[in-house]
Design a protein around this nucleic acid. Sequence first.
DNA 1: CATGAATGAGTCTTCATTCAT
DNA 2: AATGAATGAAGACTCATTCAT
Lengths: 207, 207, 207, 207
Amino acid sequence: MNPRSKSERPLKERLREAVRGEILAAAQRVFGLRGLGAAKMEEIALAAGVSVGTLYNHFEDREALLQALLDEKRQKSRARLDEVLERTRSAPFREQLTEFLRATVENFIEHRALFTMLAEDEMRGGKGRLRSQAALKEVTARYQQLVDRGLEQGALRPQDSALYAPLLLGFLRGLFMQSTWDETLPLSPELVESMVRIFLEGAGTRT
Amino acid sequence: MNPRSKSERPLKERLREAVRGEILAAAQRVFGLRGLGAAKMEEIALAAGVSVGTLYNHFEDREALLQALLDEKRQKSRARLDEVLERTRSAPFREQLTEFLRATVENFIEHRALFTMLAEDEMRGGKGRLRSQAALKEVTARYQQLVDRGLEQGALRPQDSALYAPLLLGFLRGLFMQSTWDETLPLSPELVESMVRIFLEGAGTRT
Amino acid sequence: MNPRSKSERPLKERLREAVRGEILAAAQRVFGLRGLGAAKMEEIALAAGVSVGTLYNHFEDREALLQALLDEKRQKSRARLDEVLERTRSAPFREQLTEFLRATVENFIEHRALFTMLAEDEMRGGKGRLRSQAALKEVTARYQQLVDRGLEQGALRPQDSALYAPLLLGFLRGLFMQSTWDETLPLSPELVESMVRIFLEGAGTRT
Amino acid sequence: MNPRSKSERPLKERLREAVRGEILAAAQRVFGLRGLGAAKMEEIALAAGVSVGTLYNHFEDREALLQALLDEKRQKSRARLDEVLERTRSAPFREQLTEFLRATVENFIEHRALFTMLAEDEMRGGKGRLRSQAALKEVTARYQQLVDRGLEQGALRPQDSALYAPLLLGFLRGLFMQSTWDETLPLSPELVESMVRIFLEGAGTRT
DNA sequence: CATGAATGAGTCTTCATTCAT
DNA sequence: AATGAATGAAGACTCATTCAT
């Protein structure tokens, strides 16, 4: 009944978690700075303030570290979308759509480097792509939920409705990549208003 | 006078061009198959039916070979867009837009792997990104030409018009990437009709 | 308190130094055996009993390893000359000169292969030549110190005195190279006596 | 009895000789500029205005080209020394020595790069060293002839006389190398006077 | 003979991973 | 559990030499 016994394990675990967090944070910085292919384990270790060996005490190998990092990011993104979906459940569709896109855009602005990494990861073969596809399915499902609500509310036309979710998603993905190089396209939250208007009303002068 | 004089020089040049072509074709296959980072010079040489050394007789280094390949592709894409732009000069805007998007989509379907490579190249640092940005500017300019015609014809609303070109482009880019993993989104030419309709008329029930 | 604390750090450092020493010794053998241009990193690693990678953990690249080796040699040579210069400070000039030349000759006999490497390094372009020139300046300065003492003592004629230092140095360098191929010219310490006599008194029958 | 038959062969031969000369001249430039190890066959061909293949039509391989170049140089040097030896046969020894050294120095000034190449070649293993040693023997023999004349004339002391030839030769070699890096040691013909005086009379204040 | 593209063995260098301390 | 030196397979690139035209 040593009183330390109660806290000792959690202490060690908390320390271990702290190191893991440092490593992930360092990995994010280095992968973002150098690119997924060029980032070196040694530099990540240096940035995390640990030795290379420690990296391997916490993660199976380089790929596992990368996927852990990306998975964490994907999960946070999903959670944020879920939160918006939940919060705006009873709002008018236009507002739901605006809020949803705004959340996505803000999410992107906040973690621009990570989105780039996610995209880059998708372009490579191997496990990364599989996880990306799985993650994509989940995100698409949330967009589909949004679209379904629009259809239920009668705010969206049934025609072409199967396209709406992938279109919105592709729409955003394309904009993100575009904005990475084209600085004349500022990813301001105001942009969302225009996106919503064009999606709902079109760009043409006639219906 | 010498009958050989007419053909001799071109002969060697043609041979050289033929080998260069073989190498580029092999590079396209291997880079596409393995990814930009994982493709090995040795495999490219093998696929081209030449030795490694020959690769370096035709291209400065690995990066130069890759960029030559991508540049060639970018140029062909631009040429195709120019051709459509020219051919539909006097057609109604909706038709111009449809043709333009259809050309882009067909182009993509035909060279799917290369688009992936172009996208992947953009995600890496270095010269590749610079060339991508330059190429992107040229493509965006062509989309802007199309949009300008729509505005002149009164077929597009001036509001948000600055967004139209990047939006259309981002739109397509996003769809292409999406379609790479999502097989429920077939990139059929028919898709273009829906895209045009949504862009011009919107997805909402009210204009 | 911890008894290890006193020795632990030095232990790893000593180990590291030991490996570095092994590598330098192996490099000396292999560079000497094969020549500066033909020595292979793999053979050096083999000779040192380590793997190629370890070579690069201790030295930036092949050239850095070579220069580290030569620098070490140059420094030891300078130290030896300084020691003689100091020890014979108050002796008659003829004895100083004899001791100084004897030290140089013995140094050469002892590390013949390295002198060859130093000479070979000087003939190549790049950083090697610069370091050689810098080292040469320092050695020449020591010869100049010796000559200055001779002049102060009135043992050397002021006429042509500017030539004495480079002449003595060139003299020895030439003899060393000569002796490398001409086995009829044994670089015995006795040779030094003759050299001193000829330098001081000349070879002619009349003054 | 075609009249061309008399000149046709010599014509072809003369052309062939001309090409060979161009190649050797180009090789001299490139080997001198890049160093014996770094000079590339392609650059030599370019400098000679021929194709690489032609290099191999005239010389067995790279080493043969290099040795042909050096042999040519060695032979010219020997011829010059022989000429001086012959011309000054009946002059006083001091004049003979002065002329001989002057010829060597001028020879060096004129073909500085080649001397560097000769020296560099000696430092490498293989056939080059053997040819160098052979050539050195011949040059030493000429120096020995000169020394013998000095002894016959009673102008040189018999003591240490076996050293004189190698000493003079080493003397010059060292000076040449020295002058390559030390620009405070100009290899002017005037230098020869001092060299002769020091060799004959010594640098000491007493004989 | 000249040409110059093709060849491919040979080297350096990198870096993820291991493991003794 | 942390450390960081050692490992060695892998891959880009070089360049002397060959040979079909």
